[in-house]
């Protein structure tokens, strides 16, 4: 694992992996959404609104996967002090926040015709809204922290502590009575009919590839930015 933590080796792999992930992700997600919007039958009770599922579920998964990335990278940064881990955590914040916001918006649009209201303050919706605020907090903290190693530890600790919200989101529908339905897919069994499950699975895969591609692209951009700054600083030092 330490071999890939070398920025030069990382860049060598990321250079070709970024476009591959983005193209594969766009093809899979686009195909799954087209399939979901045109080919899937209406649901028994929800009717046509079931199609929001194909955006809502992948974005929910990536909103949580984004913070898990931040937490994992922060842990690696705090223990091994490798700058690339810090860069990975920083790079995951914006895409994670975007997916979280899309998940909340699509959920709200689905809730209006299904439940009869745009929003309720139940365990699942509230904990997911907190996730969005945690992202904003992390982004502000991370942008505010200078590039010294000591101050980069502050957003890393925040990223690690904020991860406690992830199991709460996941378990909220089991621990508490919620307006939001329970998990449809649990360890190997699904209560979603195959007609919906296949495009859903492909959409999840596609969105995940897009997330991976954006993550790598942002890591490369942050690396390039810090290299450019270092070069400018060296030039300014020369007489």
């Amino acid at each position: 694992m330490h071999g890939y933590a070398n920025p030069a080796r990382f860049l060598k792999i990321a250079r070709w992996l970024t476009p591959v992930l983005l193209v594969v992700g766009l093809v899979l997600a686009g195909g799954a959404l087209a399939w979901g919007l045109t080919q899937v039958p209406p649901e028994r009770l929800q009717g046509e609104t079931v199609r929001i599922l194909f955006v809502h579920v992948p974005t929910a998964w990536l909103g949580m996967a984004g913070w898990t990335t931040i937490a994992g990278a922060s842990f690696a940064y705090l223990v091994w002090r490798h700058p690339l881990a810090d860069i990975a955590a920083r790079a995951a914040a914006w895409p994670g926040a975007c997916f979280t916001a899309i998940c909340l918006a699509t959920g709200s649009i689905w809730a209006r015709p299904t439940w009869g209201v745009w929003w309720v303050w139940d365990g699942r919706l509230t904990s997911f809204l907190i996730l969005l605020f945690l992202y904003f907090g992390y982004i502000a903290l991370s942008n505010g922290a200078a590039q010294s190693e000591a101050s980069r530890r502050i957003p890393a600790i925040f990223g690690l502590v904020g991860a406690i919200n992830i199991p709460i989101i996941n378990r909220s529908v089991e621990w508490w009575e919620t307006q939001h339905q329970r998990a449809s897919i649990t360890a190997g069994t699904s209560s979603i009919d195959a007609a919906f499950l296949w495009p859903l699975g492909i959409a999840v895969l596609g969105f995940t590839c897009i997330f991976g591609g954006v993550l790598l692209a942002r890591m490369r951009a942050i690396l390039a930015h810090s290299q450019a700054e270092a070069r400018l600083r060296r030039k300014a030092m020369q007489p």
């Binding site: 039958p41 028994r44 929800q46 299904t114 439940w115 009869g116 339905q181 209560s191 919906f196």
Partner: peptide
């Protein structure tokens, strides 16, 4: 006020 609650089952209209 009544709020409908959808369960975790997703079934096509044919059924």
């Amino acid at each position: 006020t009544l709020l409908a609650k959808h369960d975790e089952n997703y079934v096509p209209r044919e059924l």
